[in-house]
């Protein structure tokens, strides 16, 4: 019942935006190559559905693979940062520098090195994604409740130090940091399309970003809007997918979740 209500509210908001859009087009009557109406965009979505689907799948694959690779790198970096102080001194500045340089600035390099295909876009998405994952997970590991830190110290006192760190990570620090990792992953899922689309703008032969550039150059603004709408849908679905998976993976953390209410009850 509750989820139906939320769905209705979301639909209502969507319809309101469409009405405003249509109203603005009717009222100000801009030329269609500046702002097409929603009806024109819907028509284009339908007419060019095969083309949009082709390019949408390319972008989706780039984002998806970028998400997987970026997350793995992020988790690895967070564990390395948490495990050893010297490693943290070396890695943390690198991690931060990787974000201080805008992705736009490295995009041409990546295209040069990895080619016009999907590899450079996946790399770009991974660069955007790994940072929130690394920081969130490292933070979650560092913030283990002091009482638990003490408890673990007393429990392992006098025991064999071999593999102690790994066991602490596996049974205590890791699971305790899962909700924090989840926050990082949610941000990652939301920003993932940025990397892929920028990569497509800089140099590619396919994908929604590429399609938008082509459509723009040919003043097919309705197609550009259609690609944009599809990108938004992909981003939303991806977020819901990641969010749902995290919810199932960390049920104990949901009570403190801002999105808790959206869970069907």
């Amino acid at each position: 019942m509750k989820s139906m209500g939320r769905l209705a509210a979301a639909l209502g908001a969507g319809i309101a935006i469409l009405l405003l859009w249509q109203g603005a087009v009717t009222l100000f009557a801009p030329p269609p190559f500046i702002l097409p109406g929603p009806a024109a965009v819907a028509r284009r979505l339908w007419l060019d559905r095969a083309l949009l689907l082709d390019h949408g799948l390319i972008t989706l694959a780039e984002i998806g693979l970028g998400l997987v690779i970026g997350t793995l790198i992020g988790i690895g970096a967070a564990i390395a940062i948490s495990a050893s102080r010297p490693l943290r001194r070396i890695l943390l500045p690198l991690v931060i520098a990787s974000q201080a340089v805008p992705v736009f600035a490295i995009a041409p390099l990546l295209v040069l090195w990895l080619g016009y295909g999907m590899a450079s876009k996946i790399a770009m998405a991974a660069i955007v994604i790994f940072f929130p994952v690394t920081i969130a997970l490292a933070d979650g590991i560092a913030r283990l409740e002091p009482g638990l830190v003490d408890l673990a110290r007393v429990m392992t006192g006098g025991g064999s130090p071999r593999g102690r760190r790994w066991r602490l990570l596996r049974h205590l620090y890791g699971p305790a940091a899962l909700p924090a990792l989840g926050s990082g992953l949610r941000i990652a899922a939301a920003v993932a399309p940025i990397g892929a689309v920028i990569g497509e703008w800089v140099g590619s032969a396919g994908g929604l970003g590429w399609l938008m550039l082509q459509a723009n150059a040919r003043a097919k603004i309705d197609l550009m809007f259609a690609a944009l709408a599809l990108l938004a849908v992909i981003a939303l679905l991806l977020y819901r997918l990641v969010d749902g998976a995290l919810r199932r993976a960390t049920p104990w953390a949901n009570s403190t979740d801002i999105l808790k209410e959206s869970e069907p009850t």
């Binding site: 673990a152 429990m155 392992t156 025991g159 064999s160 071999r162 593999g163 102690r164 066991r167 602490l168 049974h171 205590l172």
Partner: peptide
């Protein structure tokens, strides 16, 4: 059994 797991 946390203690046992942490001690391996």
């Amino acid at each position: 059994m946390l203690g046992a797991r942490l001690r391996g």
